[in-house]
Amino acid sequence: MTNLEKFSETTAPVVHARDVRMSYGQHEILHGVNLEVAPGEVACIVGPSGSGKSTFLRCINGLEPVHVGSLRVLGQEVGYDLTNGKAKAWNAKQFAQFRTGIGMVFQRFNLFAHMDAAQNVACAPVRVLGISQQEAAERARDQLARVGLADHAHKRPHQLSGGQQQRVAIARALAMQPAVMLFDEPTSALDPELVDEVLEVMKGLARGGMTMVVVTHEIGFARDVGDTVSFFDEGVVAEHGPAREVLTHPQHERTKAFLSSVR
């Protein structure tokens, strides 16, 4: 049994951040983030640009380092092995192993430009999990059907619309059968008429019980689909609570100001 499977049987938080701080050189970006995401929860993160939302999301799967505090994801301290009373930094293999349990969807899709949609989805299961080409092809077909793109399996990313590309990116992340999905402003780079098709796929995932951390500017999505909302401001969580409550009756001035500006 892998750590991941063991973990999925517990009710411990999937993400547990305590006083997470990180800096680029002298410049501190996160000033002590505290956040918990429970299994099955859809946690939305909103806030003005430059507030550290995306940076925090990238910390969750170790794409950015945490410099102070503790960030436990799927039961592990991200980036460090804490056994035997010593904190030993992970090597590249340990990072890779850890990330197989976490799906991530990027603002700019980041589909592999030299592969078609099906190859994009099948690539990591073959190269990382080591499953057979045939099995991966089946998995790719299933996942592409799940996001409504069964007919586009053999198109290259540049032949797909932004909305379609983002759905392929979601299918690609799901093909790894992750325990949690991270979304980094998944609709911000889309033309307005393409936003809904991506949000629909994400709603379906949420209904299926997937644990999701979603950085978004789509307040409607956060209100309707999110369980909790965290309002990020200047590198801290300024307000946190049930989605509807935070978004309809914000307590903090900054939250109020932000919400009235995006509406």
Partner: peptide
């Protein structure tokens, strides 16, 4: 090559070599 390709590869659990 776009840095996003590297982000995506790492996020999918690839090592730097892969």
């Amino acid at each position: 090559v776009d840095e996003g390709q590297t982000d995506a590869a790492y996020a999918l659990g690839m090592t730097p070599m892969k």
